[in-house]
Amino acid sequence: MKKLSILLLVALPLMAAAAHKYYFSVTQADYDAQEHSLKMVTRVFYDDLEKAFQERYDASIKVDATYDQDKLDAYIQRYFDQKLIISINGKPQQLNYIGHKDEVDYVVCFIEVTGIQDLRSIAIENTLLMDVFPDQKNVIHLNAKGKKKSFLLTEGNDKAMLNFSE
Rank of each mutant, 00 (worst) to 15 (best):
F45P: 04
Q82C: 05
E55Q: 12
G115T: 14
A59R: 14
G90V: 03
Y23N: 15
L95T: 01
K62P: 08
H36F: 14
A52W: 04
S5N: 01
Y46P: 02
K149W: 04
F133E: 09
L95D: 03
I76G: 07
A74E: 05
Y22L: 14
I6T: 00
A123L: 11
K145C: 05
D81L: 07
A33L: 04
M130W: 08
V104S: 07
Y23I: 04
L84P: 14
N126H: 04
D105F: 09
G146C: 02
N138M: 07
L153P: 03
N138T: 00
I88Y: 13
S5W: 06
L4S: 01
D158W: 01
E50Q: 10
A17H: 08
K71D: 12
A11G: 00
E55D: 03
L9G: 02
Y79D: 08
D105W: 06
V104A: 09
D135Y: 07
C109L: 12
Y67D: 15
Y22C: 09
L129C: 03
G90I: 05
V63G: 02
N126F: 02
L84Y: 15
R56T: 10
A160D: 03
Q28L: 14
E35A: 15
K145V: 01
I111T: 14
K91S: 14
L4N: 01
L142N: 06
E55S: 03
F164K: 05
D158P: 00
L72S: 13
S121M: 05
